[in-house]
């Protein structure tokens, strides 16, 4: 069984000034994460203060390689009764070179029995509104 992407077309994408740089980079298919420009502490989600030094200055940097920290497998019926059941895999994707920060993202197009904690992942950008949503496949 191959994991399926969750349907995201109907989910609104609210963007504020702190998440906007993420989505601007995603538009160029670049995965960036916020790092404090003063003390170098990574953080997620993006927000107005560094929780370590309270600075508001952010240096957005490429997140680097991704690996799977944890995941769930959610079985769903197919879109129509004629379709086979689907497996949606919500994952928690860890970025060791970005302070070990984690983003919740779907694990797609991957054989279910090959998905494991620690799996190396590569990003797949899924178009959404004016930008792209990161999903991941097991390498």
């Amino acid at each position: 069984m191959i994991s399926t992407a969750p349907a995201i077309a109907d989910i609104p994408l609210p963007i504020d000034q702190w998440t906007q740089p993420f989505w601007s980079a995603a538009c160029r298919c670049e995965l960036v994460m916020p790092c404090c420009a003063d003390c170098g502490t990574w953080r997620w989600p993006p927000g107005p203060f560094c929780p370590h030094c309270l600075s508001q200055a952010i240096a957005w940097q490429l997140a680097g390689p991704a690996r799977l920290y944890s995941f769930a497998i959610v079985h769903r019926p197919g879109p129509t009764p004629a379709d086979s059941p689907q497996a949606i895999v919500p994952g928690l994707v860890e970025f060791p070179e970005a302070g070990g920060m984690r983003i919740a993202a779907a694990i797609i197009d991957s054989k279910i029995d090959r998905i494991a904690i620690g799996s190396a992942l590569s990003v797949r950008w899924v178009p959404k509104d004016e930008t792209n949503v990161p999903m991941f496949v097991v390498v």
Binding site: I8, G47, A72, A105, A106
Partner: peptide
Amino acid sequence: TTSTGVFSLFAGLVGPGPSMALL
């Protein structure tokens, strides 16, 4: 459906169950 919570939705974490499954 907030600017930071939307990532959970895009991941397919629609209810507390799948999130607890991660733990």
